[in-house]
Protein backbone atom coordinates (compact mmCIF):
# COMPACT_ATOMS: atom_id res chain seq x y z
CA UNK A 1 0.00 0.00 0.00
CA UNK A 2 2.67 2.48 1.02
CA UNK A 3 4.64 1.81 -2.14
CA UNK A 4 1.74 2.62 -4.46
CA UNK A 5 0.85 5.81 -2.56
CA UNK A 6 4.35 7.16 -2.93
CA UNK A 7 4.40 6.41 -6.67
CA UNK A 8 1.02 8.20 -7.00
CA UNK A 9 2.29 11.43 -5.48
CA UNK A 10 5.09 11.57 -8.01
CA UNK A 11 2.49 11.88 -10.83
CA UNK A 12 1.09 15.25 -11.98
CA UNK A 13 -2.12 16.16 -10.16
CA UNK A 14 -4.53 15.42 -13.08
CA UNK A 15 -3.29 11.88 -13.41
CA UNK A 16 -3.55 11.07 -9.76
CA UNK A 17 -6.31 8.70 -8.62
CA UNK A 18 -9.19 10.61 -7.10
CA UNK A 19 -11.83 8.50 -5.41
CA UNK A 20 -14.81 10.75 -6.27
CA UNK A 21 -13.99 11.07 -9.94
CA UNK A 22 -15.29 7.90 -11.54
CA UNK A 23 -16.99 8.90 -14.75
CA UNK A 24 -14.09 7.47 -16.74
CA UNK A 25 -14.84 4.14 -15.20
CA UNK A 26 -18.46 4.33 -16.30
CA UNK A 27 -17.33 5.28 -19.76
CA UNK A 28 -15.17 2.18 -19.96
CA UNK A 29 -18.05 0.09 -18.66
CA UNK A 30 -20.44 1.48 -21.24
CA UNK A 31 -19.83 -0.97 -24.09
CA UNK A 32 -20.36 -4.02 -21.94
CA UNK A 33 -23.18 -2.40 -20.01
CA UNK A 34 -24.99 -1.40 -23.21
CA UNK A 35 -24.59 -4.93 -24.47
CA UNK A 36 -25.95 -6.31 -21.22
CA UNK A 37 -28.90 -3.93 -21.33
CA UNK A 38 -29.88 -4.65 -24.92
CA UNK A 39 -29.21 -8.37 -25.07
CA UNK A 40 -29.89 -9.47 -21.49
CA UNK A 41 -31.78 -7.03 -19.26
CA UNK A 42 -34.45 -5.90 -21.73
CA UNK A 43 -35.17 -9.41 -23.10
CA UNK A 44 -35.38 -10.80 -19.56
CA UNK A 45 -37.98 -8.23 -18.56
CA UNK A 46 -39.77 -8.67 -21.89
CA UNK A 47 -39.93 -12.44 -21.38
CA UNK A 48 -41.69 -11.95 -18.06
CA UNK A 49 -44.38 -9.90 -19.82
CA UNK A 50 -44.42 -12.37 -22.70
CA UNK A 51 -45.19 -15.26 -20.36
CA UNK A 52 -48.62 -13.71 -19.81
CA UNK A 53 -49.41 -13.86 -23.53
CA UNK A 54 -50.10 -16.47 -26.18
CA UNK A 55 -47.84 -15.51 -29.08
CA UNK A 56 -46.88 -17.46 -32.21
CA UNK A 57 -44.31 -14.84 -33.28
CA UNK A 58 -46.23 -14.13 -36.48
CA UNK A 59 -49.52 -12.63 -35.34
CA UNK A 60 -50.07 -10.09 -32.54
CA UNK A 61 -49.74 -11.50 -29.00
CA UNK A 62 -52.95 -12.28 -27.15
CA UNK A 63 -53.15 -11.59 -23.41
CA UNK A 64 -54.06 -14.72 -21.41
CA UNK A 65 -53.11 -13.76 -17.87
CA UNK A 66 -51.60 -16.55 -15.79
CA UNK A 67 -53.03 -19.32 -17.99
CA UNK A 68 -49.58 -20.36 -19.22
CA UNK A 69 -48.47 -20.90 -15.64
CA UNK A 70 -51.60 -22.59 -14.34
CA UNK A 71 -51.78 -25.02 -17.26
CA UNK A 72 -48.10 -25.77 -16.93
CA UNK A 73 -48.34 -26.59 -13.25
CA UNK A 74 -51.74 -28.31 -13.24
CA UNK A 75 -52.32 -30.32 -16.42
CA UNK A 76 -49.06 -30.49 -18.35
CA UNK A 77 -47.89 -34.10 -17.94
CA UNK A 78 -44.90 -33.57 -20.21
CA UNK A 79 -43.69 -30.76 -17.95
CA UNK A 80 -43.86 -33.13 -14.99
CA UNK A 81 -41.73 -35.63 -16.86
CA UNK A 82 -39.34 -32.84 -17.78
CA UNK A 83 -38.96 -31.91 -14.11
CA UNK A 84 -38.25 -35.52 -13.13
CA UNK A 85 -35.66 -35.81 -15.90
CA UNK A 86 -33.95 -32.59 -14.90
CA UNK A 87 -33.88 -33.68 -11.26
CA UNK A 88 -32.32 -36.98 -12.33
CA UNK A 89 -29.58 -35.14 -14.18
CA UNK A 90 -28.87 -32.87 -11.22
CA UNK A 91 -28.55 -35.65 -8.64
CA UNK A 92 -26.33 -37.73 -10.91
CA UNK A 93 -24.20 -35.20 -12.75
CA UNK A 94 -23.39 -32.79 -9.90
CA UNK A 95 -22.03 -35.26 -7.28
CA UNK A 96 -20.27 -37.44 -9.86
CA UNK A 97 -18.64 -34.48 -11.49
CA UNK A 98 -17.40 -33.13 -8.16
CA UNK A 99 -16.14 -36.56 -7.06
CA UNK A 100 -14.32 -37.34 -10.31
CA UNK A 101 -12.94 -33.81 -10.52
CA UNK A 102 -11.55 -33.96 -6.99
CA UNK A 103 -10.20 -37.46 -7.53
CA UNK A 104 -8.36 -36.43 -10.68
CA UNK A 105 -7.09 -33.24 -9.07
CA UNK A 106 -5.74 -35.11 -6.03
CA UNK A 107 -4.09 -37.66 -8.32
CA UNK A 108 -2.51 -34.97 -10.46
CA UNK A 109 -1.39 -33.06 -7.39
CA UNK A 110 1.02 -35.83 -6.34
CA UNK A 111 3.90 -34.22 -8.21
CA UNK A 112 3.69 -36.59 -11.16
CA UNK A 113 6.09 -36.17 -14.01
CA UNK A 114 4.42 -34.77 -17.14
CA UNK A 115 1.66 -33.15 -15.09
CA UNK A 116 0.98 -30.63 -17.87
CA UNK A 117 0.33 -33.44 -20.34
CA UNK A 118 -2.28 -35.05 -18.11
CA UNK A 119 -3.86 -31.72 -17.37
CA UNK A 120 -4.07 -31.06 -21.09
CA UNK A 121 -5.63 -34.46 -21.77
CA UNK A 122 -8.29 -34.09 -19.09
CA UNK A 123 -9.03 -30.49 -19.99
CA UNK A 124 -9.32 -31.13 -23.73
CA UNK A 125 -13.01 -32.19 -23.63
CA UNK A 126 -13.90 -28.88 -21.97
CA UNK A 127 -12.82 -26.93 -25.03
CA UNK A 128 -14.25 -29.46 -27.48
CA UNK A 129 -17.38 -28.35 -29.33
CA UNK A 130 -20.31 -30.10 -27.67
CA UNK A 131 -22.04 -30.80 -30.98
CA UNK A 132 -19.02 -32.61 -32.37
CA UNK A 133 -18.57 -34.52 -29.12
CA UNK A 134 -22.24 -35.51 -28.98
CA UNK A 135 -22.17 -36.78 -32.56
CA UNK A 136 -19.11 -38.91 -31.83
CA UNK A 137 -20.74 -40.27 -28.67
CA UNK A 138 -23.85 -41.09 -30.68
CA UNK A 139 -21.74 -43.41 -32.80
CA UNK A 140 -19.96 -44.67 -29.75
CA UNK A 141 -23.22 -45.74 -28.11
CA UNK A 142 -24.87 -47.36 -31.16
CA UNK A 143 -25.96 -50.87 -30.25
CA UNK A 144 -25.24 -52.50 -33.60
CA UNK A 145 -22.28 -50.66 -35.06
CA UNK A 146 -20.84 -48.58 -32.20
CA UNK A 147 -17.34 -49.20 -30.89
CA UNK A 148 -18.49 -49.72 -27.29
CA UNK A 149 -21.11 -52.23 -28.39
CA UNK A 150 -18.65 -53.92 -30.73
CA UNK A 151 -16.29 -54.55 -27.80
CA UNK A 152 -19.09 -56.06 -25.73
CA UNK A 153 -20.41 -58.21 -28.61
CA UNK A 154 -16.85 -59.37 -29.26
CA UNK A 155 -16.32 -60.18 -25.59
CA UNK A 156 -19.53 -62.19 -25.58
CA UNK A 157 -18.54 -64.08 -28.74
CA UNK A 158 -15.04 -64.89 -27.44
CA UNK A 159 -16.06 -66.06 -23.98
CA UNK A 160 -19.39 -67.60 -24.85
CA UNK A 161 -21.08 -65.52 -22.15
CA UNK A 162 -24.43 -64.39 -23.57
CA UNK A 163 -23.85 -60.71 -22.84
CA UNK A 164 -25.62 -58.00 -24.82
CA UNK A 165 -24.68 -54.33 -24.90
CA UNK A 166 -27.42 -52.05 -23.62
CA UNK A 167 -29.46 -50.28 -26.27
CA UNK A 168 -28.12 -46.96 -24.97
CA UNK A 169 -30.03 -44.40 -26.95
CA UNK A 170 -33.15 -46.42 -27.73
CA UNK A 171 -33.99 -47.49 -24.22
CA UNK A 172 -35.31 -44.78 -21.88
CA UNK A 173 -33.54 -46.42 -18.92
CA UNK A 174 -30.17 -46.19 -20.65
CA UNK A 175 -30.52 -42.93 -22.55
CA UNK A 176 -30.29 -40.86 -19.36
CA UNK A 177 -27.03 -42.51 -18.23
CA UNK A 178 -25.70 -41.98 -21.76
CA UNK A 179 -26.33 -38.24 -21.44
CA UNK A 180 -24.76 -38.27 -17.96
CA UNK A 181 -21.63 -39.99 -19.30
CA UNK A 182 -21.25 -37.47 -22.11
CA UNK A 183 -21.71 -34.56 -19.68
CA UNK A 184 -19.17 -35.98 -17.24
CA UNK A 185 -16.68 -36.55 -20.02
CA UNK A 186 -17.20 -33.00 -21.19
CA UNK A 187 -17.14 -31.11 -17.89
CA UNK A 188 -15.05 -33.05 -15.40
CA UNK A 189 -11.88 -31.42 -16.73
CA UNK A 190 -13.19 -28.03 -15.68
CA UNK A 191 -13.96 -29.22 -12.15
CA UNK A 192 -10.51 -30.82 -12.02
CA UNK A 193 -8.65 -27.65 -12.99
CA UNK A 194 -10.46 -25.56 -10.39
CA UNK A 195 -9.80 -28.19 -7.70
CA UNK A 196 -6.17 -28.41 -8.74
CA UNK A 197 -5.77 -24.69 -8.16
CA UNK A 198 -7.46 -25.02 -4.77
CA UNK A 199 -5.26 -27.95 -3.76
CA UNK A 200 -2.14 -26.03 -4.59
CA UNK A 201 -3.28 -23.36 -2.14
CA UNK A 202 -3.49 -25.82 0.79
CA UNK A 203 -0.44 -25.16 3.03
CA UNK A 204 1.87 -28.20 3.24
CA UNK A 205 2.41 -27.54 6.98
CA UNK A 206 -1.08 -28.84 7.62
CA UNK A 207 -0.26 -32.17 5.99
CA UNK A 208 3.06 -32.34 7.81
CA UNK A 209 1.37 -31.69 11.13
CA UNK A 210 -1.26 -34.34 10.39
CA UNK A 211 1.46 -36.83 9.49
CA UNK A 212 3.26 -36.13 12.75
CA UNK A 213 -0.01 -36.85 14.54
CA UNK A 214 -0.12 -40.22 12.79
CA UNK A 215 -3.00 -39.53 10.39
CA UNK A 216 -3.43 -42.04 7.55
CA UNK A 217 -3.70 -40.91 3.93
CA UNK A 218 -7.49 -41.17 4.08
CA UNK A 219 -7.64 -39.23 7.36
CA UNK A 220 -5.45 -36.50 5.88
CA UNK A 221 -7.79 -36.26 2.89
CA UNK A 222 -10.85 -36.35 5.09
CA UNK A 223 -9.73 -33.85 7.71
CA UNK A 224 -7.31 -31.58 5.87
CA UNK A 225 -7.88 -31.61 2.12
CA UNK A 226 -11.65 -31.78 2.12
CA UNK A 227 -12.32 -28.87 4.53
CA UNK A 228 -9.59 -26.78 2.94
CA UNK A 229 -11.13 -27.04 -0.53
CA UNK A 230 -14.72 -26.78 0.70
CA UNK A 231 -15.15 -23.17 -0.54
CA UNK A 232 -14.16 -24.45 -3.99
CA UNK A 233 -16.56 -27.36 -3.63
CA UNK A 234 -19.31 -24.93 -2.80
CA UNK A 235 -18.52 -22.72 -5.77
CA UNK A 236 -18.40 -25.72 -8.14
CA UNK A 237 -21.57 -27.17 -6.71
CA UNK A 238 -23.53 -23.99 -7.39
CA UNK A 239 -22.07 -23.60 -10.86
CA UNK A 240 -22.57 -27.25 -11.82
CA UNK A 241 -26.07 -27.35 -10.47
CA UNK A 242 -27.05 -24.35 -12.58
CA UNK A 243 -25.30 -26.06 -15.48
CA UNK A 244 -27.28 -29.27 -14.89
CA UNK A 245 -30.53 -27.29 -14.72
CA UNK A 246 -29.63 -25.82 -18.10
CA UNK A 247 -28.67 -29.09 -19.77
CA UNK A 248 -29.62 -28.84 -23.43
CA UNK A 249 -27.01 -29.37 -26.15
CA UNK A 250 -26.09 -32.89 -25.05
CA UNK A 251 -29.69 -34.08 -25.29
CA UNK A 252 -30.48 -31.96 -28.34
CA UNK A 253 -27.74 -33.45 -30.47
CA UNK A 254 -27.43 -36.97 -29.10
CA UNK A 255 -30.99 -38.06 -28.30
CA UNK A 256 -33.30 -35.25 -29.53
CA UNK A 257 -34.99 -35.44 -26.15
CA UNK A 258 -36.00 -39.06 -26.74
CA UNK A 259 -36.63 -41.90 -26.51
CA UNK A 260 -40.15 -41.29 -25.20
CA UNK A 261 -39.10 -37.88 -23.79
CA UNK A 262 -36.62 -39.62 -21.47
CA UNK A 263 -33.96 -36.97 -21.99
CA UNK A 264 -36.21 -33.96 -22.42
CA UNK A 265 -34.88 -31.28 -20.03
CA UNK A 266 -36.39 -27.98 -18.92
CA UNK A 267 -34.34 -25.91 -21.34
CA UNK A 268 -35.13 -28.35 -24.15
CA UNK A 269 -38.81 -27.97 -23.32
CA UNK A 270 -38.48 -24.17 -23.54
CA UNK A 271 -36.95 -24.62 -26.99
CA UNK A 272 -39.69 -27.05 -28.06
CA UNK A 273 -42.48 -24.80 -26.85
CA UNK A 274 -41.12 -21.63 -28.38
CA UNK A 275 -39.63 -22.78 -31.66
CA UNK A 276 -41.21 -26.12 -32.49
CA UNK A 277 -44.73 -25.56 -31.18
CA UNK A 278 -44.71 -21.81 -31.85
CA UNK A 279 -45.87 -20.95 -28.33
CA UNK A 280 -43.52 -18.17 -27.27
CA UNK A 281 -45.57 -17.20 -24.20
CA UNK A 282 -45.72 -20.75 -22.88
CA UNK A 283 -41.99 -21.11 -23.52
CA UNK A 284 -41.31 -17.89 -21.59
CA UNK A 285 -43.43 -19.22 -18.71
CA UNK A 286 -41.32 -22.39 -18.55
CA UNK A 287 -38.19 -20.22 -18.57
CA UNK A 288 -39.45 -18.25 -15.58
CA UNK A 289 -40.34 -21.40 -13.69
CA UNK A 290 -36.78 -22.56 -14.38
CA UNK A 291 -35.44 -19.25 -13.06
CA UNK A 292 -37.42 -19.62 -9.86
CA UNK A 293 -36.13 -23.17 -9.38
CA UNK A 294 -32.51 -22.13 -9.88
CA UNK A 295 -33.01 -19.15 -7.58
CA UNK A 296 -34.48 -21.26 -4.78
CA UNK A 297 -31.88 -24.02 -5.08
CA UNK A 298 -29.02 -21.53 -5.07
CA UNK A 299 -30.50 -19.75 -2.07
CA UNK A 300 -30.85 -23.03 -0.16
CA UNK A 301 -27.28 -23.93 -0.98
CA UNK A 302 -26.01 -20.58 0.18
CA UNK A 303 -27.86 -21.08 3.47
CA UNK A 304 -26.64 -24.64 3.92
CA UNK A 305 -23.03 -23.82 3.16
CA UNK A 306 -22.55 -22.36 6.65
CA UNK A 307 -22.81 -25.89 7.99
CA UNK A 308 -20.03 -27.40 5.94
CA UNK A 309 -17.98 -24.82 4.11
CA UNK A 310 -14.80 -23.92 5.91
CA UNK A 311 -13.30 -20.50 5.18
CA UNK A 312 -9.68 -20.14 6.24
CA UNK A 313 -9.36 -16.89 8.23
CA UNK A 314 -6.35 -14.67 7.57
CA UNK A 315 -3.74 -16.50 5.52
CA UNK A 316 -1.95 -14.88 2.64
CA UNK A 317 -4.96 -12.92 1.48
Amino acid sequence: MTASTSSQSSLPRWRRYQPDQQWEAYLFLLPSFAGFLIFVAVPVVASLALSLFEWSLLSPPEFVGFKNYTQLLSSDMVFRKVLVNTFYFIVTIVPLQLAFGLLLAVALNQGLRGLEVYRLIYFMPVVTTIVAAALVFQWFFNRDFGILAAAIWEFGAETGIPIRPPDWLNDPDWAKPAVVILTLWKNTGFTMVIYLAALQGVPTELYDAAKVDGASAWQRFRSVTFPMVSPTTFFLMVIQMIGAFQLFSEAFVMTQGGPANATLTIVYYIYQMAFEFQRMGRGAAVAWVLFIFIFIFTLVQTRLQRRWVHYEAGGES
Binding site: G258, A260, Q272, Q278
Partner: peptide, 23 residues
Amino acid sequence: FVEWSQIGGSFINPGRDQILIGE
Protein backbone atom coordinates in the same frame (compact mmCIF):
# COMPACT_ATOMS: atom_id res chain seq x y z
CA PHE B 1 -53.80 -26.98 -37.88
CA VAL B 2 -51.28 -25.13 -35.74
CA GLU B 3 -51.45 -27.26 -32.59
CA TRP B 4 -50.59 -30.41 -34.56
CA SER B 5 -46.85 -29.94 -33.99
CA GLN B 6 -47.40 -30.05 -30.23
CA ILE B 7 -49.75 -33.04 -30.42
CA GLY B 8 -47.18 -34.93 -32.47
CA GLY B 9 -44.12 -33.75 -30.54
CA SER B 10 -45.45 -34.06 -27.01
CA PHE B 11 -47.82 -37.03 -27.16
CA ILE B 12 -47.85 -39.14 -30.31
CA ASN B 13 -44.11 -39.52 -30.98
CA PRO B 14 -43.02 -40.20 -27.37
CA GLY B 15 -45.99 -42.58 -26.99
CA ARG B 16 -45.01 -44.42 -30.16
CA ASP B 17 -41.41 -44.72 -28.84
CA GLN B 18 -42.72 -46.29 -25.63
CA ILE B 19 -44.71 -48.88 -27.57
CA LEU B 20 -41.88 -49.79 -29.94
CA ILE B 21 -39.40 -50.18 -27.06
CA GLY B 22 -41.88 -52.41 -25.28
CA GLU B 23 -42.39 -50.25 -22.19
